[in-house]
Amino acid sequence: MLLIYCPYCEEERNELEFRNGGDAHIARPTNIADITDEEFEEYFFIRQNPKGLIYERWRHVHGCGKFFNAARDTVSDRFYLSYKAGEPKPDPATFLNNGNESALNKDKGASK
């Protein structure tokens, strides 16, 4: 059962309060009525389903009700960070391998 940080409630909450909303940073074309079939296919149907880092949308549906985005590792289910809807996509260099392994984890690797 995941623990998800809501950037609006400023607190980690149980997964039960949230609903996943699929990939983040896929903007609806402002001229959607005029785009080609290929552009519509790309926008509406095509997703990467990555193994590893994903930017995804969550809604704190049984909490503050807000949509926000999160960067998560699809293998470990580790959340790197959550940020408010509308904020730019964070550069992975700013959070990968940076505080990723907590000091505690390093200690543990060294023990035994």
């Binding site: 909450r13 309060e17 049984h62």
Partner: peptide, 10 residues
Amino acid sequence: CSRTLVGKAE
């Protein structure tokens, strides 16, 4: 105060 769940109910 907080909106949350009790069982299956909000």
